[in-house]
Design a protein around this nucleic acid. Structure first.
Length: 265
DNA sequence: ATGGCACTTTCAAAGTGA
């Protein structure tokens, strides 16, 4: 089973590109962030005609997350939205249980973590508050769901200097602060591994490149899109994680590349 | 040190992104 996480930066604006990618790679599961549309505007038909079941949690203009799956879980089971801070008006979390035809069920969580704006801003304070709430929510979810869990999405955190093209320039900046990285570690300490780093211990690859600086052309990027994976069931394994740099280089691309986790078993 | 682009929305200047 493969699970792709992709901040598409408007699903309606990106639909042609996304469908082309889906037709080329036919992922089992898709997790989108930054839909920038309301639920009734989500292009369900384009995906259902390709065999995907869609669960979207959208909002107007900003944020919005969705989980789509081809055959791992039809229909989606135990869908939860509006976490970790319910009622904040920000559509940043959706979860469901994947029940593969063969193999153990997996609890899948798709996140669009708060960006955080500038240091010392209300947005940054809210990001830390949101991440604290997330740690508590994941802890409770771990107790509620016995099986393995995958938490993917746009974390807006570069976990280490190896995940940053210019660590000196980014030192202490939002996405790289100690406070954010502390929350990242708190998540890992609940029993998760950074699947990319597990499989690529020394790789310097990035999942986001700034439009403004044309950073992609110089490989100036950050790795902020992640799949955290809990202890797996017997026979399951993290086979690989890939970042599709090619998709980021196309015209009309999102500023994020799709990142795919390949789970065996 | 600064700005740069892309997207959305009461249609156009402003907020947000990272």
């Amino acid at each position: 089973m493969n699970i792709t996480s992709w901040n598409v930066n408007s699903i309606r604006r990106r639909l042609e590109r996304v469908l082309q990618w889906v037709d080329d790679h036919h992922p089992d599961v898709l997790c989108f962030q930054e839909l920038k549309c309301q639920d009734h505007e989500f292009p369900t038909d384009a995906f259902s005609s390709r065999g995907y079941t869609c669960s979207a949690f959208g909002q107007k203009t900003y944020n919005g997350v969705a989980i789509l799956s081809r055959h791992a879980c039809v229909p989606h089971d135990d869908v939860v939205t509006d976490f970790p801070i319910p009622g904040d008006g920000q559509a940043r979390g959706i979860a469901c249980t994947l029940r593969p035809i063969t193999g153990a069920p997996v609890r899948l969580v798709n996140l669009y973590v708060v960006n955080g704006g500038e240091l010392n801003s209300d947005k940054y304070a809210y990001k830390l508050q949101w991440l604290d709430a997330l740690v508590g929510w994941v802890r409770a979810e771990r107790e509620r769901f016995e099986g393995p869990m995958v938490i993917c999405g746009d974390y807006n955190i570069a976990p280490a200097d190896l995940d940053v093209y210019d660590p000196k320039k980014w030192a202490g900046q939002v996405l790289c602060t100690d406070a954010e990285r502390d929350r990242w570690r708190a998540l890992l300490e609940l029993g998760f591994v950074d699947s990319w780093r597990l499989r690529h211990p020394n790789a310097r690859e990035f999942s986001w490149f700034d439009y403004r600086t044309a950073g992609f052309d110089r490989n100036d990027g950050l790795r902020i899109d992640h799949h955290l994976v809990s202890r797996l069931s017997a026979g399951q394994a993290i086979l690989d994680v890939t970042i599709d740099r090619e998709a980021r280089g196309l015209t009309d691309a999102s500023d994020h590349a799709p990142v795919t986790l390949f789970l065996g078993g």
